[in-house]
Design a protein around this nucleic acid. Structure first.
Length: 152
DNA sequence: GCCAACGTTGGC
DNA sequence: GCCAACGTTGGC
């Protein structure tokens, strides 16, 4: 069982959206970065736990936890020409982009802000806290996971 | 809205 | 294969 952090814009999909339907599996689509794609496709497994990070909002930070309810499968939006995430170069025989399913687990009583996370020495190796980092799917070590839980 | 960081594209 | 131009991310 591994730990992850996924970024999402809460306007698109937030921890509250997940919490509103706690038994539903939500499609985690739209990952269009190869490094993030490789993590999703090759390493994320059903049962893994994920910090849900809200980005492009005020304040940015970790909002809660979800569980991976289905491992990687081809992201259907890449083949949908009416969709924002459509990719004309994606081939159904050899999909380029992958999605997973997630299910609600926990909402934090308050957002664990990026500002706060940046001040924690144990977390300084996380891509999340590094300037200019744009990785939207990243692994979290067991130490980092425990450290973040202790901050709630 | 600005802009730094950085990933992708495409001409050569 | 290089690299300039361009587009996107995401904090501020």
């Amino acid at each position: 069982m591994a730990y992850w952090l996924f970024k999402t814009e809460p306007d698109e999909l937030s921890i509250d959206d997940l919490a509103a339907e706690p038994n539903r599996s939500f499609l985690w689509d739209g990952v269009r970065n190869y490094q993030a794609r490789n993590f999703l496709r090759d390493q994320v497994q059903a049962g893994d736990l994920v910090f849900i990070y809200h980005s492009s909002c005020k304040p940015p930070g970790i909002a809660g936890i979800a569980t991976i309810s289905r491992a990687a499968y081809p992201d259907p939006t890449q083949f949908d020409s009416s969709h924002t995430y459509f990719d004309a170069k994606a081939d159904p025989q050899s999909p380029r982009w992958f999605a997973v399913d997630v299910r609600y687990k926990q909402k934090f009583s308050e957002i664990l802000t990026l500002d706060k996370l940046k001040k924690i020495v144990t977390l300084e190796m996380m891509p999340l806290v590094k300037k200019g980092n744009r990785l939207s799917v990243m692994p979290v070590s067991s130490d980092e996971w425990q450290c973040i839980l202790s901050l709630i």
